[in-house]
Amino acid sequence: MLKALKSIHSALTSYYLIFLLILIWELAPRLGWVNAVFVPPFSRVVKVGADLGVGNILLYIAISLKRVFVGFFIATLLALPLGFILAGALPWLARFIRPFTVFLSQIPPYILFPIFVIIIGIGEGGIYTVIFWSSFWPILFTSIAGISQVDPLLVRAAKAMNASRIEIFFKVVLPAAFPAIMTGMRSGLTMSFFMLIGAESMGADKGLGWLIHNAQSMGFIERIYLGALIVAAVGALLNFVLDFLEESIVDWKEAPEEQTV
């Protein structure tokens, strides 16, 4: 019996603080510590969520995720080959245009939104462009860095064994650069999800960012909290899935950095 309790305790340790926060959130407005209009108790937020309907919420999540993934996919499709070509075949060009690419990558995508609206028009295009912009640069930079950091000894060894250029690329360079590229893709995806909420609150008619923004302009305070909760949950879930993917795909370069004592 005690053992079972202990195992439950150790499994739940990580969540105690979250439970505590929810409890305080529930009790504080009810006991009058804070104004219940501005901080609605947790149960009311959940009830508003139930009123909105699980189906609707899932729909909003799906719409937002679709935007993220489409924008991210296009960015990956363009950035990866470009990075490979720049780093592998034209390193002088990569060095030459580097100040320019750094300059472009530093333009905050969020304030580009009004410009995209002027150029492309209002609607999905602007949101996709913002997401594209925020994931394109990290992927490009890390793929260039990853490829140029491949141990030249490996490439020479493969050359000595009479490997063709394509073989060298697919069997030596790509696997060696893969962990770095994965890191870049991951930070690109995280960044896109981060930007998405901002872009959706600027101009959209569906989605999570819109849910929050709409609630704010209509004064549905419960819905603001609900939206923030959902965004945090989806972000955590996305992170969890990425962790899992990274562990299952990058399985060969587990060795840590060499220990120099």
Binding site: Y15, F193, A228
Partner: peptide, 22 residues
Amino acid sequence: EKLLLPFFRMCEKLNPFAIIPI
């Protein structure tokens, strides 16, 4: 750490854009 880290991770995931209205 075990007690606090998951909570902090959760907070980290709370997008600043989502928290601006709050």
